[in-house]
């Protein structure tokens, strides 16, 4: 892991001993994770293992109970107000359900971060938005539509265009291919690779779609019971020697990971 980090650059994100509980339920129980600049890390793990919670802690959408998160060497836990906004400008996020604003047309969605976050004039922002839409394979005719008029795959593309519109240094992808058909999944994977490369961005994704993981990851980390239990290069994933990882990537019901039938 350290070797990998050194070859790609300094750590862009450093997470140490991150804890987060909801009532009695411990979701994150001491997460340690480094993401190097320019690297694409995918965190895998079953549903409800805290993958999304980890991302939300980094983004400041949730307040961790304990632990440290450094972005470019700067501690962000406990940051708020204008400091937080300054750091947030480094981030772009693709939400699982696209999370497009229903009340705004597509181009306004894409231009939102530019207009509201960066106070760019609307015409200028619209031109950039159209460019970003083109980059994800959507024509200008889509720009005036509303999100509800689009298919799931198109919504994902718009969301991707929105995530890259402000040219962030770090992009988070929350289950980018969930709910898409295999072909559309691959299209989105391709776009993610292309966008991340074009921007030279650092990417942190969470996924349980192994085909997608193999496409977009440089490095994979597996989260289980609120901890990172394995991390390694994506090529190493098939001979990790870790029974949890083996069970997960082959999708077997039998193994050390026991799925709870229902939450208490």
């Amino acid at each position: 892991m350290n070797f990998e980090a050194k070859t790609r650059g300094w750590p862009k994100i450093e997470i140490r001993n991150l804890h987060k509980s909801f009532g009695p339920k411990k979701v994150l129980d001491g997460v340690d994770l480094d993401v190097a600049a320019g690297e694409s890390v995918v965190v895998i793990g079953g549903s409800g293992t805290g993958k999304s919670v980890m991302l939300k802690c980094i983004l400041g959408l949730l307040q961790p109970d304990r632990g440290s998160i450094k972005v470019d060497g700067e501690e962000v836990v406990g940051m708020n107000g204008s400091e937080r906004r300054r750091v947030m400008r480094k981030f772009g996020m693709l939400f699982q359900g696209a999370a497009l604003f229903d009340s705004l047309p597509v181009w306004m969605n894409v231009a939102f971060g530019l207009i509201e976050g960066r106070h760019m004039p609307r015409d200028e922002a619209k031109a950039i938005a159209l460019g970003k839409l083109a980059a994800v394979g959507l024509g200008a005719e889509v720009a005036e539509l509303y999100p509800v008029e689009l298919s799931g795959g198109m919504q994902k593309r718009v969301a991707l265009a929105r995530a890259i519109a402000t040219e962030p240094e770090i992009i988070f992808f929350d289950e980018p291919t969930t709910g898409l058909d295999p072909i559309m999944s691959d299209v989105i994977n391709e776009l993610i690779i292309k966008c991340v490369q074009d921007l030279g961005a650092t990417a942190l994704s969470i996924s349980h779609d192994m085909a997608s993981v193999r496409r977009i990851a440089h490095r994979v980390a597996m989260i289980y019971n609120g901890r990172i239990i394995w991390t390694g290069a994506v090529d190493a994933i098939d001979h990790s020697g870790n029974p949890y990882v083996d069970q997960f990537i082959h999708g077997r019901a039998e193994g050390p990971i026991q799925m709870a039938a229902a939450y208490p």
């Binding site: 939300k56 983004l59 400041g60 959408l61 906004r85 947030m88 400008r89 981030f91 772009g92 996020m93 939400f95 699982q96 359900g97 999370a99 497009l100 604003f101 229903d102 939102f112 971060g113 509201e116 976050g117 960066r118 929105r162 402000t166």
Partner: peptide, 12 residues
């Protein structure tokens, strides 16, 4: 639908 979270990530 996480639109409120999306607002925050877009510096709003």
């Amino acid at each position: 639908t996480e639109q409120i979270d999306a607002l925050t990530t877009l510096s709003t």
